[in-house]
Design a protein around this nucleic acid. Structure first.
Lengths: 173, 173
DNA sequence: CATCCGACTGAACAGATTGCCCAGTGAACA
DNA sequence: TGTTCACTGGGCAATCTGTTCAGTCGGATG
């Protein structure tokens, strides 16, 4: 039987990061929307052979485009309904120590070093606003941290998402 | 055969969010470390019956503790290696419009409304530092936004994580 | 104290899925 | 032209899933 797969060959290698083609995009989006469906069901939905989906998925994972399929855990449901962002100013040369310190605090969900006013920015969670004080004390109670400024999250109108970016990356280039 | 499962009954309901017990914690951590293993393999590793793991997983999901298993996509691998955080000041009463506007920008990966200096905080990605300018222009090019201050991410010493928090939630309580 | 209930165990079953293999086709490329 | 690569469509054994069942145990209830 003739294969009309030719139109799929759109992939181009970029200097930074791999590009993904339309089929890759559809795989990721489908997976994001219904994470439980397997390779077989995906191949049916996408109208391609199972082996193709399997190969694409393998490539996406070894490319690093898909890092993994870990469970998305809701801190609020764990009893940590308060989220905050803290901007930290670090004493010169203490960066590494501060990183190591913050990595030991479970309530620090992520940490970035940044340009701009602060030197670092981290996302915190806490059991309550009162508990946030405890967390911040623990975060800031370290010699290398000069100052911290905290913004408490009230609403989260756009939860962490990737689909629109994937669609843009897959379509437009 | 006698079952020694009694020691597992530790769960307590909290006013905000469900608590998780030790077994729940081990399930989540195991799943986070090796997302591809199935229920059967988990039951073997954890030394409990398959039905138990299955029931726990179902409960964790209906509880909302586990939101889903969507693929973790790396924006850098998609060609968006630059991440930034933008703090936005919003004109009074324009919040809803700004939310809607930002939701249409694929490079806006998440958006929060916050207390503190700014009114909103969003995470952006871009193809390059130059491209970040385009993204910011698009974000800020909206009437309701008074001012934006951006911090570019250099390093990410602690990538978004949940395991330490899960372990604390499962053990401590 | 007797009983009920919820959670767990261990086992079973059919049906579906996975991992793996293969030969053949078509497009791009040298 | 010949090679390489991606995809198709098929098949196979091994595994896993979804589901059900009876039985055990501890905690809570009355």
């Amino acid at each position: 039987m003739p294969t009309d797969a030719g139109f799929l060959y759109r992939m181009t290698i970029r200097e930074d990061g791999m590009a993904i083609d339309h089929l890759d995009g559809r795989i990721i989006v489908l997976l994001a929307r219904e994470p439980r469906i397997g390779v077989l069901e995906m191949s049916r939905r996408l109208g391609v052979a199972r082996g193709t989906v399997q190969a694409r998925l393998d490539r996406l994972q070894s490319n690093g485009v898909i890092r993994g399929f870990g469970p998305e855990v809701d801190p609020a449901a764990l009893g940590y309904p308060v989220t905050a962002f803290a901007t930290l100013q670090i004493r010169q040369g203490q960066g590494a120590d501060v990183r190591a310190h913050l990595a030991t605090v479970p309530e620090v969900l992520e940490l970035h070093t940044t340009t701009g006013t602060g030197d670092m920015m981290c996302r915190l969670v806490a059991r309550s606003n009162a508990d946030l004080q405890r967390v911040i004390d623990r975060v800031v109670g370290f010699d290398g941290i000069v100052r911290a400024s905290t913004a408490i999250v009230m609403e989260n109108p756009v939860p962490l998402r990737i689909i629109p970016l994937v669609e843009q990356a897959a379509l437009g280039e």
